[in-house]
Nucleic acid binder design. Structure first.
Length: 450
DNA sequence: AGCACA
C-alpha cells in the first residue's frame, strides 16, 4: 500500500531519529533552552528553534540515536511533561535524520566582523577611520579591507565574540560620523555580520590591512621603493627615511606639555627609551627614542596630526629624526633616559642632545647596559588602542562622546556636548597603558588618507 | 497541537 514517505507526517508513530521535533514551545525559546532540555539524555549536537509559521516549534539533534530514544522514552512515561518556561512541550521523532541549519556564518557570533561599507564614496574610508570607529568597543587586533562584488568590505578582529557583538549591535546600519570622513564625502553606512574567521592573517602593515598587535610587522613592500630608504607612503606621500627616533613639534601649545606627558603618550606604542625636549623656532620640540624603527613608525602613524588635549590644543607633528641614539647627559624636566635603572635627578639645565648618530655617549648613557623599565613589547599590551584617544587633526575640534569599551554607540549629534578640559588627563586606562584623555576619549580621526 | 523557503 502506501509507502513510508507517503504516510502523513503527523501519524502517531514515527520511526526513531536522532532528531526530535518539538511543538508548543514558547516563541521566546532559545537554542540554549533546547540544549538544556536535551542535555540530560545525551549530547545535543544541533538545534533549531522558532520553526514554523507560529515560531513555536523546534528541533533537537542528538549525537546518537539512543540518546534521542532515551529522551522520548523518558517523557513517554514521565508524570512531568517536558517544559520550557513552564510550558508543556510535546516531543516526537522528527521525520528527518538531521537538522539542516540554514544558519549561515553570518548568524554565528564570532570575534571577527565582516563590515560592508555602503555609499558612493565607501572606498575612500580609510582603515584608520575604521580602526577608530571599532576601537570604541574594545581592542581591535587586526583589520583587513578588500573589494568584492558586495562593495568595499573590511574584516575587523576583536579579542572575543562578546566585544564583536557589542560593536555589531551598536554600529550595524549606522553611518560613519561625517566628521571622520573627508570633506564632501557622502554618507557611509556600515552593514555588519559575523565572519567565520577567528584570526586574520595580516602579513604587512599597509593601506589595506593592519595588525595592531604586532608593532614589528613590516610595512608592505609595495610601500617601499627599491632603495628601501625612501618610499612612497601608504597615502602616496613621500616618506622620510624611517628612524627609531621621532621628532615631535607641538603646535598650539596652550597647555604645558611635560616630559611625563610625552612619555605617557608615546609609551602607548612601545617602550620609550629616551626623550629630549628643547625649544626651537619659538615652539617646543622633542625627540622620542624607541628601541626600533617599527615602533616609531606605528607611533608616528597613530599620533601624527593629533592633539594631546581636546580642542585642538597641543597638536603633534611628527617626523623621523636622523638620530638613532640620543645622548642624554642629564635627567631633568626636559630630558630623560628611561633605560637607566636608577635615574639620577640632576639640577635643571638645558638638555644636551647627541647631534649625530653614534655620537659619544654621555655620562650614564651606555655604561649602563641595564634593560629599561619596560618589559619587551608584547604586541597587544603596548598597542592597546594606540590612536583612539586623540582629537582630530587639522584644527578640528570636533569630538565624539564615545567611551572606550562602551556598549552604546552615541550618535554624532551629541558630539561636543561635553569636553574634558586640558589638565584632566587621566591615569592608566583599563588596559594598563597610560593614555591621556582615555577617560573620555575624543572621537576624532586622522584626516583623509586617500 | 503535528516537521524547517533557498
Amino acid at each position: 500500500m502506501a509507502s513510508v514517505s507517503s504516510q502523513p507526517q503527523f501519524r502517531y508513530t514515527q520511526p526513531p531519529s536522532k532528531v526530535l521535533h518539538l511543538r508548543n514551545l514558547p516563541w521566546e525559546c532559545t537554542e540554549e533552552e533546547l540544549i538544556e532540555l536535551g542535555k540530560p539524555f545525551g549530547k545535543v549536537v544541533n538545534t533549531k528553534c522558532n520553526v514554523g509559521a507560529n515560531k513555536n516549534q523546534a528541533f533537537i539533534e542528538f549525537a546518537d540515536l539512543n540518546q534521542a530514544i532515551a529522551m522520548i522514552s523518558y517523557y513517554a512515561s514521565s508524570s512531568e511533561p517536558a517544559q520550557v518556561r513552564g510550558k508543556t512541550v510535546y516531543l516526537q521523532y522528527s521525520n528527518r535524520q538531521e537538522i539542516v541549519n540554514n544558519k549561515t556564518t553570518a548568524d554565528v557570533a564570532g570575534n571577527v566582523l565582516l563590515v560592508t561599507i555602503e555609499g558612493n564614496d565607501a572606498r575612500l574610508v580609510s582603515i584608520d577611520v575604521l580602526h577608530l570607529v571599532f576601537s570604541a568597543f574594545g581592542f581591535v587586533h587586526k583589520i583587513t579591507t578588500f573589494e568584492k562584488t558586495a562593495g568595499f568590505q573590511a574584516l575587523v578582529q576583536f579579542s572575543d565574540a562578546e566585544t564583536a557583538s557589542s560593536a555589531k549591535n551598536a554600529l550595524d546600519g549606522r553611518c560613519i560620523p561625517s566628521y571622520l570622513l573627508p570633506e564632501n564625502m557622502g554618507p557611509c553606512t556600515l552593514r555588519i555580520t559575523y565572519s567565520a574567521h577567528t584570526d586574520l592573517s595580516v602579513k604587512f602593515q599597509s593601506h589595506r590591512s593592519r595588525d595592531y598587535t604586532n608593532p614589528y610587522l613590516p610595512v608592505a613592500p609595495s610601500a617601499i621603493d627599491g632603495t628601501g630608504q625612501l618610499g612612497v607612503g601608504l597615502d602616496g606621500k613621500k616618506l622620510e627615511p624611517e628612524s627609531n627616533v621621532l621628532l615631535a613639534s607641538i603646535e598650539n601649545m596652550q597647555y604645558a606639555v611635560t616630559l611625563d606627558v610625552l612619555h605617557m603618550v608615546f609609551s602607548a606604542f612601545g617602550p620609550v627609551q629616551k626623550i629630549a625636549m628643547f625649544d626651537k623656532n619659538g615652539g617646543v620640540q622633542a625627540l622620542i627614542q624607541y628601541p626600533d624603527v617599527q615602533t616609531a613608525v606605528l607611533a608616528k602613524e597613530a599620533l601624527e596630526g593629533h592633539c594631546i588635549y581636546d580642542g585642538g590644543f597641543c597638536k603633534l607633528h611628527l617626523s623621523y629624526s636622523r638620530h638613532t641614539d640620543l645622548s642624554i647627559k642629564v635627567n631633568n624636566d626636559r630630558s630623560r633616559d628611561y633605560t637607566l635603572p636608577n635615574p639620577a635627578i640632576a639640577s635643571p639645565q638645558p638638555s644636551i642632545l647627541g647631534q649625530q648618530p653614534g655620537s659619544g655617549a654621555g655620562p650614564g648613557t651606555s655604561q649602563y647596559g641595564a634593560p629599561g623599565q619596560y618589559p619587551p613589547v608584547s604586541g597587544q599590551t603596548m598597542m592597546q588602542q594606540p590612536s583612539a584617544g586623540w582629537g582630530p587633526p587639522h584644527g578640528s575640534t570636533q569630538s565624539m562622546p564615545m567611551q572606550m569599551h562602551s556598549n552604546h554607540y552615541m550618535p554624532p549629534q551629541g558630539a561636543g556636548s561635553y569636553q574634558m578640559g586640558p589638565g584632566m588627563m587621566q591615569g592608566p586606562n583599563s588596559g594598563g597603558v597610560p593614555h591621556p584623555s582615555m577617560g573620555r576619549p575624543s572621537y576624532g580621526g586622522p584626516g583623509p588618507m586617500q
